[in-house]
Structures are given as C-alpha cells and as structure tokens.
Design a protein around this nucleic acid. Sequence first.
RNA 1: GCACCCGUAGUGAAAUGGAUAUCACAACAGUCUUCGGAACUGUCGUUGGGGGUUCGAAUCCCUCCGGGUGCACCA
Length: 580
Amino acid sequence: MEKEIKNLIKDALKNLNIEVSNIVLEHPENLSNGDYSTNVALAIAKSVERNPKELAEKIIVEILRLNVDKNIEKVEVAGSGFINFYLSRKYFSKSVEEILNNPENFGKNDSLEGKKIMVEYTDPNPFKPFHIGHLMSNAIGESISRLVEFSGAEIARANYQGDVGLHVAKAIYGLLDNEKLQNKNGTHNFQAGNIGQAYVAGAGAYENNPEAKKEIDEINKKLYDKNDQKINEIYDWGFKVTMEAFEDLYKMLGTKFDFYFLESMMADIGREIVNENMGKAVGPENNRRIFEESDGAIVFKAEKYDPKLHTRVFITSKNLPAYETKELGLAVEKFKTYPGMDLSIVVTANEQMDYMRVVAKAISLIHPDFENKMKHVTHGMMRLTTGKMGSRKGNVITGESLINEVRDTILDKMTDRDFSNEEREKIATEVGISALKYSILKQGIGGDIIFDFEKSISFEGDSGPYLQYSYARANSILEKAQKENILPDPHAFPPEIFEVEKLLYKFPEVVLRSSSLYEPHHVANYLIEVARAYSSFYGNNIIVNREDPSSSYKIALTYAFSFVMKNGLHLLGIVAPKKM
RNA sequence: GCACCCGUAGUGAAAUGGAUAUCACAACAGUCUUCGGAACUGUCGUUGGGGGUUCGAAUCCCUCCGGGUGCACCA
C-alpha cells in the first residue's frame, strides 16, 4: 500500500512538472489524521516558491484524477500543508482477510532472508547467582533473536559463561566454610541452592577478612593447577548443579541455546591470536603493531587507531590472559563454530561498551572481513531504588526468587478459575514471566531500569498480563462463536471502521522496524495499543450476536486480533495462554 | 580531567525532523451493559536552562546545569 501511494504522489507531481526524489510517507500519530500522510507539499513549497497549502490542494486534485484504485477513500489537506490519505473500508477488510489466510506468517518479512546470525546473551556465571540483570539480558536477547528470525534469518543462540576466576574460589570458600559449621552437627552435604549464598559469603569474607582472602587466593591457585582432589570434586559438582539450575530457568524463560561457550576454553584460543599478532605490521605505516609489550604486560594501544579508544591489557604481567583476550578468542571462535555467519550480535550491559570497542578494533585489524559482521547491543542496568546492585555485595534479587514471588502473587489472583493444580502452576508461571519480560522490554533498551518490585508485578494497564488477558478474552469469544456456530467472514463488514483494524495491518511494519534497529520496545508499544483498541471494541460491541448481520465480521476481526497478539507476544518471548 | 550515554506530567516510559507531544500508574469522576472487571469511558498534568539550524525541533548543532558509566594488568 505504501508503495502504491508513493507512486500516486510521484505521478501527481509529475503532472505538475515537479520532481521529487524522496517522498516521505508516514502514519500520522493521531488516527483522526488519516492512515497515511505525506509532507511533500511542505518540503518542496520553498523551492517552487509556492504556498504549501495551495500546493497541497493542487497535488490532491491530481491524485484524485489518478486514483482508480478504490483502496483510498479520501485525500485531504490538513495542518500547515500535510496531505492525508484515508484508506477505504474495503482495504481494512481485505487486510483482515489476509491475516486469516496466513496467521502463522503474518508479521514476517524477508529483510534478512538467507542470513546466518548468532546472538549471544544472558551470560550468567556458574557459582554466582543468576540475578535480575541476567533476566534483563535474557529477555532482550531472546526477543532480538525472535525478531531477526521473523525477518527470515537463520539464527543461533549462544551463551558465554565464566567458569573460571576468583568468583569460583570465593564460592568454594563459602561452601567449605559452611561445611565447617555443619560438621559440628555431624552432617555435611552441599546443596545446589546454597551456592549463591556461599558466593556472597565468600565475597564478603574476601573483602573484610585478610585470612579468608589468603585462603581464597590459595583455593584459586588450586583451581588453576587442578591439583587438589577435594577442590576439584567440589568444582565439578558445583559446575554441574549451577548449570542444571540455569537450564531450568532457561526452559521457564523460553530460551533454548544452540551453543555454550566457556571462558576457560577461550583463554588459549585468545592467547594464540595475541601471539600471532605481536608486533605485526598493519596498515600503511609499518610501525603499527597490534599487540605490544608495556610494563611487562601485553597490551593493545587502540588509541593509535581511534582517538576515542584507549589502551587495554590483554596478557597480564603475570602472564595470564585478561578478559579482553578471552573475548577476542570468543569473537573469533564464533565464526568457526557457526560457519558462514553473516552477523554476530552480542548483548551485554552498556558498562562493557568501551572494552568491546577496543576488542572489536583489534579483531577488525586481524580479520578485516569480520569488521562489519559484529554488532554489540548494550542495555542499561537494573537498579534498585537503594542504589547499585552487585552480586558481591549480596543485595541481589535472584531471577529465581523473583519469578517465584511473582508467580505466587498470580496464583492468589487465579482462584476464580477452574484449573487443575498443574495447569494453574503452569499458567501462573507464564503470566509471571510475561509481567517481568514486558516490564523490561516495554522501554528502550539503552536506559537503566529502576527496579520496583511492586511495579514489575503489576497486572494492570501497561503490562504483559494485560496483553495476555486480552488474548485470552478474545479466545473465549471465539469459543463462544464456535458453539453458536457463527463462522468468521471478512466480507460481512459493517460501514463503520474500527480502530483495531487501523492498527492490525501495521504489524509487519512494526516488526521490520523493531528487528532492523534491534529494539524490541516498538513491538511492545504496538501491542499495548492494539490490545487497548481491541478492548475498547470489545466494550462497545456485542461480538457474537445472531441478530447482527456483521457479527461474523466482528468474529473475523477477533481472530485477526488474536493472531497478531499471539505472534507479537512470541516476539517478546511471551507465551499466550488461551485461558488464564 | 578525557570519552560515551542520559535528562519528557507526582512516578515509570513512548514519539523514522512534522500536526493539538502519546501511553500507563497514581489522583479524581463515572460505567457495575447478557461474550472473562486482570476491563471500559472521562478529568487533571510534561519536553532541565539559554542560544542556533529549519517552513517545522523532545529529536540535529553549540553552551551551561544535573545524573550515570567507562578510562592498564578484575570480569
């Protein structure tokens, strides 16, 4: 439709002997200003030395002369010289029919057809709590994955996990300490659920207790050398149980990873790349070396290539690979793991933006062909009203506890429905996750989210459960229609055009925008608008009604709404239960 | 100090350079209408300050004020 209107405008202008290379056509924010709008008259008024309003009038005369297509009902000048297009009743009913004919694919586009894309996100560390920051990364990464999938890409989900480092030693110290206490009672067995606490205890001891610090450093060394039987056993056990616990969470959250990368595996790969590129001449000037020695460490002086970047240490003076080296190894390894990859997306908090730029610069010097195939998507932080949250400080809200709490609140609310216990649990979890995911995804991902427990579990208005509710309600209407044997019919439309219809056909455009910008919130905002329009339609119309000849159209519209809502929720990583 | 990000109703957010700045929560007033009240209808209220570019600025440029993050051996 967009293309047709643009051509119409172009032809009209041609008849007036005006040429415009780029015609801007947009949807007016306010539906009363039409379905499409163009500013050409305003844009060219000055260069042709005419009053924009008069010019717009003339353009409209030409458009009306050319318009043989009955999809446009009305064209008029508004404001300071906008030309507004109102689509016809028939157009909207056709778009409803289109949705009904191909519900699963409605909203998809082919902008990334044939592309292979990997998305890395979530990235929790074994032995550390999975906190709401990970929930945030997961919600965003999963949504981006689904968006690019809807745009035709083949996609691989990846998770990068820090299985080595001081945090592991801290957690193990905490566990051993805990064991000492329990030994007095003659029992000692570790519990999976204690690892998070053990980490917090260990981290606290590391900072406040010099003796503990010494012990932890020793444990760290033993972990590195792998020469202590007991430490090795605890490590293997702890690694296994935390990974299993994460897996349960992913399942609940609706994520299935294709690749897992472990930090310990990246160290050697990265180190090798660093070694290969020591003092290597790059670029027009021969004195440019990627990695060089400085104060006993091996560094990359990125500011040589870009004044906005800075020097970072890749191999420490103790000859240990730093985070940057592992990240370098990881980035390159991904291309090997997923051959033919066109784009590698990494989702992290925006604190990491500057490191990642430096690492990306190094990679682009080593592998120039990768330069345009890497994309870093950064998001803000979850903040508590009390300030910065840190897993070391222990003032974390774990993902698990949050999900449980939200689910319990919903269970209380669900008492009036007739479900088996199993169903009730399942739905409460789905609704709870929807509340959390929506509260993350409804806003632009760059900014911080001030986390307020009360608000995150709100079920009213601008919330995930509201969207699910509108879907469930539509669904029960459709059930009723089936019982009454009234079939949907997109041709039985009444003269009136409903607001929902004016929104439904825009879904594919919204998906395309959201996917090409990697910004899920456009879909979230769109869905809330559609849900509201549908609720309003629902409130003002009796949909299933034998007396009403347009009832079957209203049912068709309800189907169309439910399909769009279901697909849209899917893109946010939220399931749409038929009942709740 | 340098770099990057941000500043929109009481609160949390939205707005490919466009029209009367949108939405929810809160507050207030209604609907209690047979299909699910986790709802619907209405009222109230906002672009940090100052310049500039533009027919047109929350958006782009400059500057000031306020906040966040990052800047060499942690990840």
